[in-house]
C-alpha cells in the first residue's frame, strides 16, 4: 500500500477543477490508456493579458495522478502563461506534501500536460507524435529529451529513479542500458574511455596477458555489478572466445554485451579483435 499524504488523499477523494472548460483556448493531452495514466488539460486564457482564467482536467490514473492534476490546475490558475511555464513537477509534488518516489511520474505527467497545452496555445508543433527520433522507452513512449530534462531538474542519477519519474524502463526493461548511458553522459561527461595502452607491436604472449588484464580489470567488474560474469575460454590469434556466465546466461542483452566487450578490447588491446561466444 502506498503512503499518500493527507493532501493527496483529499485531492483524490475531492478533486477540484474536473472536466473541460468550454471553448478552450488551449488543450494538452499526455499519456495513454495503454500506459495506465493519461491527462487532458484544457485552459481558458485571457488573450489580452495572457492570463489563465480557468483550467480543468480529466485524468485516467491512480490516486496520485488524480491528485497531481488537481494540484496542477490550482497552481496555474490566475497566472500568466509565462509564469505557468515555470511550474515544475517538483512544485506539483510539493503542493501535495510530497509523493511516494515510485509515483513521481504522476507529477511529471502534470508538467508535460501543461507544456503541451501551452504549446497548443502558442501554436507550436501541435503534437509531438511525429518525433520518432530519440525514443528511448517503447513501452511507455518516453523520449530522450524528456529523460534528460526530468533527470536534470530532479537530479536523478540512477535508471531506477528515472523509471519512478518518467516510467521509462518500467515495462520490458530493455531500454535500461540506454537510460544508464544517458545518465552517464549527463553526469559524468568527462569520463572518456581511458587512453589506449597500445604498445607498437604486441607479441602473442603480451597480447594474451593484456586481454586477460582488460577482462579482469575493465570488463568483469561491470558484468558482476549486474549480477553477471564471464569466462575467457580461448584466444586464437585475434579471436577471443568467451562464455557469459551467471545472470548473463539467457540475458536478452547478451549480444549487446558481447559487442561492448569487443569494443573495449579493440580500444584497449588491438583494433582488429573479434569476440565470439563459446
Amino acid at each position: 500500500m502506498w503512503e499518500y499524504t493527507k493532501k493527496v488523499k483529499d485531492f483524490f477523494l475531492h478533486p477540484k477543477n474536473v472536466g473541460e472548460v468550454e471553448n478552450p483556448d488551449a488543450v494538452g493531452e499526455v499519456g495513454s490508456m495503454v500506459c495506465g495514466d493519461a491527462l487532458k488539460l484544457t485552459l481558458k486564457v485571457d488573450k489580452a493579458t495572457d492570463r489563465i482564467i480557468d483550467a480543468k482536467f480529466q485524468t485516467f490514473g491512480c490516486a496520485s495522478a488524480i491528485a497531481s492534476s488537481t494540484a496542477l490546475t490550482e497552481l496555474i490558475k490566475d497566472r500568466t502563461i509565462d509564469e505557468a511555464l515555470k511550474v515544475t513537477n517538483q512544485d506539483i509534488a510539493e503542493y501535495l506534501g510530497g509523493l511516494p518516489k515510485e509515483k513521481m511520474h504522476c507529477s511529471v505527467m502534470g508538467m508535460e500536460a501543461l507544456e503541451a497545452a501551452i504549446a497548443d496555445y502558442r501554436g507550436e508543433d501541435k503534437k509531438s507524435v511525429e518525433k520518432k527520433e530519440g525514443l528511448v522507452c517503447e513501452c511507455f513512449d518516453v523520449y530522450e529529451d524528456t529523460i534528460r530534462r526530468v533527470a536534470a531538474e530532479n537530479h536523478l542519477t540512477t535508471a531506477e529513479e528515472v523509471t519512478y519519474y518518467t516510467k521509462a524502463g518500467g515495462g520490458c526493461g530493455s531500454c535500461i542500458p540506454k537510460i544508464e548511458e544517458i545518465l552517464k553522459d549527463m553526469w559524468f561527461p568527462a569520463e572518456k574511455p581511458k587512453p589506449p595502452i597500445k604498445p607498437k607491436k604486441l607479441t602473442n604472449l603480451q597480447k594474451i596477458a593484456l586481454i586477460q588484464d582488460v577482462i579482469e580489470k575493465e570488463i568483469r567488474p561491470r558484468l558482476q555489478a549486474d549480477g553477471g560474469d564471464l569466462e575467457l575460454i580461448d584466444i586464437d590469434g585475434n579471436k577471443v572466445i568467451i562464455a557469459l556466465r551467471a545472470m548473463c546466461t539467457d540475458c536478452k542483452m547478451a549480444a549487446v554485451t558481447l559487442k561492448d566487450i569487443e569494443q573495449k578490447l579493440r580500444t584497449l588491446v588491438v583494433p582488429d579483435i573479434v569476440v565470439e561466444a563459446e
Partner: peptide, 10 residues
C-alpha cells in the same frame, strides 16, 4: 476507462 488503484482506494 478507470484505473484499478483509484477504485481500490475509493
Amino acid at each position: 476507462f478507470v484505473e484499478g488503484e483509484a477504485i481500490l482506494l475509493r
